[in-house]
Simulated scan of single mutants.
Amino acid sequence: MSDEQLTPVFNIQRMYLKDLSLEQPNSPLILTEQGQPQVDINLTLAADPVAEGMFEVAVTATVTTKLAADRTLFLIEAKQAGIFEIRNLPPEQMEGILGIVCPQMIYPYLRAVVSDICTRAGFPPVLLTEVNFQAMFEARQQAQAEQPAAEALN
C-alpha cells in the first residue's frame, strides 16, 4: 500500500441549504395579538453515504412558535447539509466524525438561516443556542446501548 492510501482524508466538498419551510397558519389575525410567544426547537441529525468515501450530513431545525396554547404564530423547518469526503479512517472514528465534527461545521449556517427567515417573515429573530454535539452523540450512544439491555429484560 502506498502512503497516500493510508493517509486520513477529511474535506468539505460543499455546504448547502437542502430544505426550508415557513408557515404562518394564523396570519394575519395572530399578528395583532400581544403576548410572549412560546418557542419550541427540535434538532435532528442525519448522515448518509453518497458515494465511496463521500457522505452527506444534514442538521434539521424545527422551530415552532406559539401564542397561547394552540395558536401557532409561525413554524420554520430548515435543513442545512454538507457533503464531506472522509477516507482512510478507522471505523470506530467514523461515527464520531459524522455525528460530532460534521454537524458542528454545519450548525452555524443553520443558525444564520433560521435567524434570517424569522426577520424576513416580520418577526424578531430566533437565535438558536450553541449545541454540544459531542454530548448529544454520547447520549444517543448510551441510549442505544441501554435499549438491547432493556429488551432482554422484557
Rank of each mutant, 00 (worst) to 15 (best):
P37M: 10
P37K: 10
P37L: 12
Q38M: 14
Q38N: 14
Q38W: 06
V39W: 05
D40M: 11
D40V: 14
I41A: 03
I41D: 04
N42V: 15
N42S: 13
L43F: 02
T44R: 05
T44W: 00
T44G: 11
T44F: 03
L45G: 11
A46N: 12
A47L: 01
A47I: 07
D48V: 13
D48S: 11
D48G: 00
P49D: 00
P49T: 03
V50P: 01
V50A: 04
A51Q: 11
E52M: 09
G53R: 02
G53F: 03
M54W: 04
E56G: 01
E56C: 02
E56R: 03
V59R: 01
V59P: 03
T60E: 05
T60Y: 00
A61L: 07
T62G: 07
T64K: 14
T64I: 15
T64E: 14
T64M: 13
T65V: 15
K66E: 10
K66Q: 13
L67F: 09
L67D: 08
A68Y: 12
A68E: 14
A68V: 11
A68N: 13
A69I: 11
T72P: 14
L73E: 09
L73R: 07
F74S: 06
I76S: 06
E77I: 13
E77C: 09
A78I: 07
A78M: 05
Q80G: 06
Q80Y: 12
A81I: 02
G82S: 01
G82M: 04
G82P: 02
G82K: 01
I83A: 03
I83E: 00
E85C: 08
E85A: 12
I86Y: 01
I86G: 01
I86S: 01
I86K: 00
R87S: 08
N88A: 13
N88E: 08
L89M: 06
L89G: 00
P90D: 14
P90I: 08
P91N: 07
P91V: 06
E92D: 15
E92N: 14
Q93V: 03
M94W: 00
E95W: 06
E95R: 12
E95A: 15
G96R: 09
G96K: 08
I97M: 15
I97T: 14
L98W: 07
I100C: 08
I100N: 10
I100R: 05
V101F: 11
V101N: 12
C102I: 07
C102Q: 10
P103V: 11
P103W: 09
P103N: 10
P103F: 07
P103S: 10
Q104I: 09
M105L: 15
M105Y: 09
I106Q: 02
I106K: 00
I106Y: 03
Y107M: 10
Y107P: 09
P108K: 00
P108T: 04
P108I: 02
Y109G: 09
Y109F: 14
Y109T: 08
L110H: 01
L110W: 04
A112Q: 13
A112I: 00
A112R: 11
V114N: 05
S115R: 04
S115P: 00
D116E: 10
I117N: 02
C118W: 04
C118D: 02
T119D: 08
R120N: 14
R120K: 15
A121T: 06
A121E: 02
A121L: 06
G122D: 00
P125E: 03
P125G: 05
P125C: 05
V126L: 10
V126N: 04
V126K: 07
L128R: 03
